[in-house]
Design a protein around this nucleic acid. Sequence first.
DNA 1: ATGATAATGTACGCCACCGTACAGAACGAG
DNA 2: CTCGTTCTGTACGGTGGCGTACATTATCAT
Lengths: 186, 186
Amino acid sequence: MPRTARLTRDDWAAAALDALAEGGPSAVAVEPVAARLGASKSSFYWLFENRQALLDAALERWERTQTETVAARLAEIPDPAERLRRLVHQAFAAPDYGDLTLRLLTASDDPAVRSVAERVTRRRLAVIETAFAELGHSPELARHYATMSYSTYLGAAALRRVGAAPEDPHAYVDAVLAPFGIPPGA
Amino acid sequence: MPRTARLTRDDWAAAALDALAEGGPSAVAVEPVAARLGASKSSFYWLFENRQALLDAALERWERTQTETVAARLAEIPDPAERLRRLVHQAFAAPDYGDLTLRLLTASDDPAVRSVAERVTRRRLAVIETAFAELGHSPELARHYATMSYSTYLGAAALRRVGAAPEDPHAYVDAVLAPFGIPPGA
DNA sequence: ATGATAATGTACGCCACCGTACAGAACGAG
DNA sequence: CTCGTTCTGTACGGTGGCGTACATTATCAT
């Protein structure tokens, strides 16, 4: 098991994911990513079939890390209100919150992007919907609330791109949660 | 004043706007749009400086029509609750609601796109914020509510791209408005 | 009709990116 | 050390879009 400076498939996937976050799917191009790694194309084509495989690897990586970090930590919180509160605060905490998600949703013309975006979206909506259902809302209302609150997240990511995002995220998320009957936590 | 079959600057702008809606800014390319019109490049370069000028014209056209159709009709409605109700229903009525807006926000890397998107966003948020303020909410809360409700619109457009949009828009918008203290209209 | 001007077509060079060919370097096993 | 395998660099051809050059057609005023 050599631990050399040679590039691995995962190094490329990580770099591709960076490029994806910065410039969207079209930025996941072989030559630019190679430059980012200080490597050359042949290195890439040794490890990957083609450009599409790189994009797939980046998407797979995103789906995996995103699922691990976010979803896993939340399932442990028993109180649904507290779970939602934590979820929302956590979502709005990162400086680039939602940006990549938004890009992928918007770029869902590409079938590979779409299928990943679709899975992640469904999973996230389900988590939120479950929490609202546990709070005693009807299935239909829980679904609506989930759609609304996740849309608020996506919308904020979009508004951020033109400098129209809420200035004070903390105050904003409290204001977001209140209409759904969730008072600000400690 | 010849009314011939010759192509005008506006014909190109319209076709470019179609391309923009379908494929985002990167789809506003000279040759593809020329093909769409059954014309050739030289025809384009006679009327326009370069590709950027075409994109600018498409964006200008979008900003203009969007302002005329949406904003103008609403200013006449005196009751803010009714105004919001109409605005939201109207926004969710079109089959491709929000799609172009979302694309432009997401593609705001391009300075030209960004400045237009910025203006339109500010204007729309101001309209909504005013309505909430007229309903008696504090300036800060009105701003939060405006951000939230417009985000809901943007989010729905994003979710639509992966087939996760609300199935029944009518029921959804009523559920959206209720938490803000706006009961469904007639 | 005829010539000036407006508009379009064809052909070209340029660049960025995809993918391939092939030669050479790095590394481990014997 | 040396040889085969693994990886990387350089060089090339192909494609699609940008922009230009120049020839060609259409249209209008006279």
